[in-house]
Simulated scan of single mutants.
Amino acid sequence: MDQDHPLVRDVYPDLITELVSLLEDEGERELAICVWDVRLFGECGCSDDFCQSIRTSDHLPGQPYGQGHRCVPLLPAKGMLNLDVVDGRIAYVEILDRPTMRREADT
Rank of each mutant, 00 (worst) to 15 (best):
D2K: 13
Q3V: 14
Q3I: 14
D4G: 15
H5C: 13
V11E: 14
V11A: 11
V11W: 10
L15D: 08
T17H: 15
L19W: 08
V20H: 07
S21F: 13
S21K: 15
L22G: 08
L23R: 05
E24L: 13
D25H: 13
I33N: 07
C34S: 14
V35N: 04
W36A: 09
R39M: 02
L40S: 01
G42W: 09
G42P: 00
E43N: 08
C44Y: 03
C44W: 00
C44E: 03
G45R: 03
S47V: 07
D48P: 02
D48A: 10
D49N: 05
D49E: 10
D49W: 04
C51G: 06
C51Q: 03
Q52D: 00
S53Y: 01
I54T: 00
R55Q: 09
D58F: 01
L60I: 14
L60H: 09
P61D: 00
P61Q: 02
P61V: 06
G62F: 04
Q63D: 11
P64F: 01
P64H: 01
Y65V: 05
R70M: 02
V72P: 00
P73M: 02
L74G: 05
L75I: 11
N82F: 08
N82V: 05
D84V: 02
V86Q: 04
R89Y: 12
A91G: 13
Y92Q: 02
Y92K: 04
V93K: 10
E94H: 09
I95A: 07
I95D: 03
I95K: 11
R98F: 03
P99G: 08
P99I: 14
M101L: 15
E104I: 14
E104V: 13
T107K: 14
